[in-house]
Amino acid sequence: MDPFLTSRIVTDVLGGLTNGVIYGMVALSLVLIWRSTGVLNFAQGAMPMFATYVGFALLSYHFGYWPCVVACIIAGLLIGGLTERLLVRRLYGKPEINPIVVMVGFLIVLEAVAAAIWSSFPRSLPSPFSSIDWQLAGKPIALSPFTVYEIATGLLVMTAVAVLFRFTKLGLQLRASAVAPEVSRLLGVRVGRLLTLGWMLSTVVGVITTVLVSSNFFTGLTPQVMDGIFAFGFIAAAIGGLESPVGAIIAGILLGIANQFVTDFVNQNAVIIIALALLIVSLMIRPSGVFTKRTERRV
């Protein structure tokens, strides 16, 4: 028996890490859109939710889990791209409140339409891995094959996004379009297409997150499945800094772990209160986010 792995502290850290990776991915998807288009996307939970319903509709046609996931990603690409082209593009350059109001409205519409089509009852999705925690000498450790799948997928997605932005030509163009759209156009970069691509990419990160959340045996898929998670992802993005993808991920992971400790040592109802308190304190100390450099947008 290894008392360390089954200790209360390690159990909380591992349990929090799983949620933290999910919050980090939501925060990352918010930051991707904010950095590229300056829009705070309040429908960032609802758009992937809708794509996940669309993708998993294939279950009725006897497709398995993985083909459905691919279908979810394709649906996410389409929803992200169409939203940018048809809805968001008209809002660039308008007062900041306009896209916020529109995206909150879009969130409400998507959740209502999803409920009308697929009902509000939780829909259980097939899970590719067991959600039962592994045990060491009869004591459970806070890890199951499914949580390892969640953490590994989350880290893989974050790494892929980092590699895309840091080391590829496409990433360089995406970054340039975000910070200096006019200069980018003068250099021949097709900024309009890249903004659409940014929304598609961000929605796909959201779709993968939603698939992970809703294929958990204990959660299932509902039209509101991402609402609570979006709130924590939003808090993580604000604490980490909306300009900083790495900051958003780190803040998401730390927030997940902190939540787990609060749940364990205080009370589950205190989680959101403490998360909001953390947000308020961090915004008072560093309004632009803990990890945002002040010079980042200087051109």
Partner: peptide, 9 residues
């Protein structure tokens, strides 16, 4: 462009 337009970051 005027102001050079290099991307500082």
């Amino acid at each position: 462009p005027e102001g050079r337009g290099v991307i500082g970051e």
